[in-house]
Design a protein around this nucleic acid. Structure first.
Length: 518
RNA sequence: GGGUCGCUAGCUCAGUGGUAGAGCAUUCGGCUUUUAACCGACUGGUCCUGGGUUCGAAUCCCAGGCGACCCA
């Protein structure tokens, strides 16, 4: 097309390329006027939301003398001949700019074309710095009556429709920066996420826990059942894994004498993507010497209730339309009892795996084909029949030993361990247990895992010999727990998808690979 | 992995076999109290990609891509 041959002064612009060319031309015009369309700084003394709150009582038509200086992005322009109203958005909110040619002409004497530039060379999307006084217009809108302004950054690309915004979900995730500009609730979600993470960190620091960072790159990926990402270190020429948990290293620190440690960090699991799963996600794991799983259930109730209270101001929340009461105490019920309650099956009474499989098959409630033990079958039935029904916060406790290779055996019940999983809104949100400290038992558990791995279970762990050595030096009785920060943030921000609480979730490339034939 | 739905202008969406549409944005003109400003004029398209059927495909068929939801 020969249409774009005259970029100097496009007569009209509609396609993205044409809009961009028009704006580049405005950049040039600003530069020719001696102005920098990509400025260095602005003295920001005020923010929109603060001003809105502080002057909430200012009556229509009233003005105040105090000078304010703010900066932000132009979200809307309403331009008249010698008067203009812009809506400016900063991190806190929006405020209207009252741009009067007369006022600007009197104060910006060194820029005789200042008002004309405002009308002709600024666009929705540009970043603007302004100084002025405050007035509430006759129509009741608090406004900065601008005396001085500068284009701080000229935007070359247009923002989405001011009314309908950006709704294309894929585009929202791929271009989160645009999503954040035009969808204020998205900013609020990430603001809350930061508050939640900060509150969690403060909670543990206030109780004497030390945050100690452990390796992401590991020779053996342990501490959970999950497929790891594999990478390679060139100069050592060795295969490394990205961590699937922080557990085994934090427990080494407990062996080393720290009594309370935690780590908030990124975990990587090479598994599917869904509304509840992202390949990299954030967990907090924390460990306390001389404590057991009863202590940590109490701690968890208090932690999550106090986070909700401090961030949301309440412990009674609504998640996707369902009321959820986070007020402690929460129900504690064993996996055996809960499965019995929902299905009538009493796994304590089965004498063989075959008998149990027969009973499960007779009810037609779960596919236990892949289960090689009573404990795994019990877990399978739980996951298929019970898990999603646990809406109100519930501690599922005393899991089968077969699915809990790092937990201490129950002090009075054979076959189960001292473990709890917290379910809220049908989702596992936390997992903790009295830590297995017996190195002989731990070796047997690892070897059982290794055998599964050898048999083709890609989620099974290998034997971590160095961790066993650490245990042989002696680990104090300890309780440990991990909480999925993303899922907790989903719950507290009423977000349906984990992608709504991860700023830059992993996405498939949005174009087909064209390099296949080359 | 299976099923359903979606993909058309920068954005939000109509268009179900016969000339590719609207609103907003953009561009131009007007306007000193607007706030989805208004009034007038204009501009803007690989209809996700590739193949097929047809005189003719955004539309029907096949394959693929990306996404949403549901199921496993």
């Amino acid at each position: 097309m020969a249409k774009t041959e005259s970029p100097q002064s496009p007569q009209s612009a509609s396609t993205l390329d044409e809009i961009r060319a028009t704006r580049l031309d405005k950049v040039k015009q600003l530069q020719e006027a001696g102005l920098n369309p990509f400025a260095y700084r602005w003295d920001v003394t005020d923010h929109a939301a603060d001003l809105q709150a502080k002057y909430a009582d200012l009556a229509p038509g009233e003005e105040v003398e105090a000078e304010v200086a703010i900066a932000g992005r132009i979200l809307a322009r309403r331009v008249f001949g010698k008067l203009a109203f812009f809506t400016l958005q900063d991190e806190t909110g929006t405020i209207q700019l009252y741009l009067d040619k007369k006022v600007i002409g009197q104060t910006m004497t060194d820029q005789p074309d200042a008002f004309t530039h405002l009308k002709q060379l600024t666009d929705v999307g540009d970043l603007l710095g302004v100084k002025g006084t405050l007035k509430r217009t006759d129509k009741g809108e608090l406004s900065v009556k601008v005396q001085d302004y500068a284009v701080l950054t000229k935007a070359l690309l247009p923002l989405p429709d001011k009314w309908h915004g950006l709704t294309d979900v894929a585009k929202r995730y791929r271009q989160r920066y645009v999503d954040l500009i035009v969808n204020p609730p998205v900013r609020e979600t990430f603001r809350k996420r930061a508050l939640i993470t900060s509150a969690i960190r403060r909670y543990f620091e206030d109780r004497g826990f030390l945050e100690i960072e452990t390796p992401v790159l590991q020779g053996e990926a342990g501490g959970a059942e999950a497929r790891p990402f594999i990478t390679h270190h060139n100069s050592l020429d060795m295969q490394l894994y990205l961590r699937i948990a922080t557990e085994l290293h934090l427990k080494r620190l407990i062996v080393g004498g720290f009594e309370r440690v935690f780590e908030i960090g990124r975990i990587f699991r090479n598994e599917g993507i869904s509304t509840r799963h992202n390949p990299e996600f954030t967990s907090i794991e924390f460990y306390q010497a001389y404590a057991d799983y009863h202590d940590f259930m109490a701690l968890t109730e208090d932690l999550i209730a106090s986070i909700a209270q401090s961030v949301l101001g309440t412990t009674e929340i609504t998640y996707q339309g369902t009321p959820i009461d986070l007020t402690p105490p929460w129900r504690r019920v064993s996996m055996h009892d809960l499965v019995k309650e929902h299905t009538g099956l009493d796994f304590h009474q089965f004498e063989s795996l075959e008998q149990a499989k027969g009973a499960v098959a007779a009810l037609g409630i779960a596919n236990g084909d892949g289960c090689d033990s009573l404990g795994r079958l019990l877990n399978e039935v739980f996951e298929q029949q019970v898990e999603t029904t646990l809406i109100q916060p519930t501690f599922l406790i005393d899991h089968p030993v077969e699915i809990s290779p790092l937990s201490k055996p129950h002090r009075s019940q054979p076959g189960v361990v001292e473990r709890f999983e917290l379910f809220i809104a049908g989702r596992e949100t936390a997992n903790g247990f009295s830590e297995l400290t017996d190195p002989i038992d731990q070796r047997q558990r690892f070897e059982a895992q290794a055998a599964r791995k050898a048999a083709g279970d890609l989620e099974a762990q290998g034997v971590d010999e160095d961790f066993l050595t650490a245990l042989e030096y002696g680990m104090p009785p300890t309780c440990g727990e991990g909480i999925g920060i993303d899922r907790l943030v989903m719950l507290l921000t009423d977000s349906a998808s984990i992608r709504d609480v991860i700023a830059f979730p992993l996405l498939k490339p949005d174009r087909a690979e064209e390099g296949m034939e080359s």
